[in-house]
Design a binder for these strands. Structure first.
Length: 479
RNA sequence: GUGACCAUAGUUUAACGGUAAAACUGCGGAUUGUGGAUCCGCUAUCGAGGGUUCAACUCCCUCUGGUCACCCCA
């Protein structure tokens, strides 16, 4: 009885908040029509200036700060990406975060979740519909076209690294602002190009100490796929009663996805479903075989996965994903995805240009690196090194920055704290930094032109001439 | 977008229907030129809003956020 009552209350409350939401949406729409900048009411202005009562500024949902402790990982990932991309002859391309919304809609396709549910779209102050990039390929294609890169020697190989935005529900390894390492290769319809890209992604992960397996499939030409889709949909319709609820929905929405269903009860039915390989044209089949031969040659481990389809409209022929070997839990283990898109450049108004590319999720790699660092934490000794500069007295304090600057020019990087005056506090800090040596500059030393070098482990101190400091430090830190 | 669990100092975690306890960290100090030890002090409008109650951090609802799974993707 009580339960029933509560349910009712819940329902009413829900409908009220819904109505409220509708009202506020209406309000926003009305406001959008106002000339920009829109005039705010006194109340709204106050809300912006003072903030909602009692609310601290907070991170937007699904956004993440990169903190100093994470930076070494980021640096490592970026440098590894840079190193490998350039070794394979890719040129760096940086496109804007904002593009015309239609660019993304046309290339990724209506009906995909990325476009229909996740893209950040808004009207610019001059009325342009702009979108924040949810992936790199569209922008890269646009750049290829707008800079006439088809006149360069083909293939044109480009790599990018940066932020992408998708309004998804945050989850493990999934954020609304995410980073990808992206490579594209334009202008060559050649199995070697596909293989090269896969190897770049694979080696990138291997260089970071991540063992992976590549999953390969071919989805043929759009015609192949269309024919297959008709066949598959027909099959699923007949077997409808054997499928789970999700799969029933997928029949009309995205039949290819049904093949991937994790529901045990669907398994037998789906295993007997027609496979796309049998619907590929001879040319597509041959092309795919050649890609695989290259991979054999390159000794990149791969498996064939007939159910692999990709969620973006533009793919043709080769598609692939890369998964970490060790952990299988969760569905966030796909580190990289990509494939060939031979029609996209032409469809967006450029010269017909075959192309292939991949995108690699940096946050997912980060998760793995952090996990590995955690596992090895006890094994790795904290590296001892570095030098701290301590000062004593006003005169010394004034000299500190200058001396630090001189030493920096000589390639000696120091920790220091000008804010702390007590020597004790400074030594405490030096200890926390875990430095091997501390330089101490006091009143007396300033006058004598000397400085104290303190060995932090033994506590032994020696006084040296400031002029000999550099060579003295070099001698010590080298050992 | 759907569902489950969660929300107390910077961090990790307690307790209780009657105005919060500890550890670690941070800052300050234990007679003013010497750290790693010890001791002392400071630091929480108990995520926001509302309701039940004489009284709520503790019970209920809504919102927000987090985590995880689905969906989807990297």
């Amino acid at each position: 009885m009580l339960k029933k009552h509560m349910k009712k209350i819940k329902k009413t409350a829900k409908s009220i908040t819904k109505k409220r939401a509708e009202v506020s949406v209406k309000k926003i729409i009305q406001e959008e029509k106002r000339p920009i900048p829109a005039a705010l009411s006194e109340e709204e202005e106050q809300l912006i200036v003072k903030g909602p009562k009692g609310k601290l500024p907070s991170l937007l949902r699904g956004m993440k700060d990169v903190l100093p402790k994470d930076w070494p990982h980021w640096k490592k990932i970026y440098h590894t990406a840079e190193g490998i991309a350039e070794a394979y002859g890719f040129g760096y391309l940086e496109t804007p975060v904002l593009e015309e919304a239609s660019l993304f809609i046309r290339s990724i396709g209506r009906g995909t979740d990325i476009i229909d549910k996740e893209m950040y779209v808004f009207e610019d102050r001059d009325g342009t519909r702009v979108g924040m990039r949810p992936e790199f390929t569209a922008g890269a294609v646009r750049a290829y076209i707008s800079h006439g890169m088809h006149t360069l020697p083909q293939p044109v190989k480009l790599w990018s690294f940066g932020q992408l935005f998708r309004h998804d529900r945050p989850q493990a390894g999934r954020y609304r602002q995410l980073h990808q390492f992206n490579c594209e290769s334009f202008g060559a319809h050649d199995p070697a190009v596909d293989a090269e890209l896969i190897v770049v992604a694979y080696n990138f992960l291997r260089d970071l100490g991540i063992e992976t397996t590549v999953q390969m499939n071919s989805i043929g030409t759009p015609e192949d796929r269309q024919n297959y889709l008709v066949e598959l949909t027909g099959y699923l319709r007949i077997k409808r009663s054997y499928l789970c609820e999700d799969c029933k929905k997928r029949i009309t929405r995205n039949p290819l996805r049904a093949l991937d269903c994790k529901n045990e009860s669907c398994r037998p039915t789906l295993e007997e479903a027609p496979q796309i390989v049998d619907w590929l044209s001879e040319a597509s089949k041959n092309y795919f075989m050649k890609v695989l031969e290259f991979l054999d040659e390159l000794e990149a481990p791969y498996t064939l996965k007939p159910t692999l389809v990709r969620g973006l409209d533009y793919y043709t022929e080769t598609v692939f994903e890369i998964y970490e070997d060790s952990v299988v839990e969760g569905q966030q283990s796909a580190l990289c995805g990509g494939g060939r898109y031979d029609l996209l450049v032409g469809e967006l108004g450029g010269p017909p240009t075959p192309a292939c590319g991949f995108a690699l999720g940096v946050e997912r790699v980060m998760t793995i690196l952090r996990r590995k660092a955690e596992e090895n934490k006890d094994k790795v000794e904290k590296p001892v090194g570095g030098v701290f500069f301590a000062h004593l007295g006003e005169q010394a304090r004034r000299r500190t920055l200058k001396m630090i600057e001189d030493l920096r020019r000589d390639g000696v990087v120091l920790h220091h704290s000008l804010g702390k005056t007590a020597l004790k506090a400074q030594l405490e800090l030096a200890d926390k930094f875990g430095v091997a040596y501390t330089l101490i500059l006091g009143q007396k030393e300033v006058q004598d032109g000397t400085i104290i070098i303190r060995d932090m482990e033994s506590g032994i101190q020696e006084i040296v001439d400031q002029k000999k400091l550099k060579s003295e430090l070099e001698k010590k830190t080298r050992v």
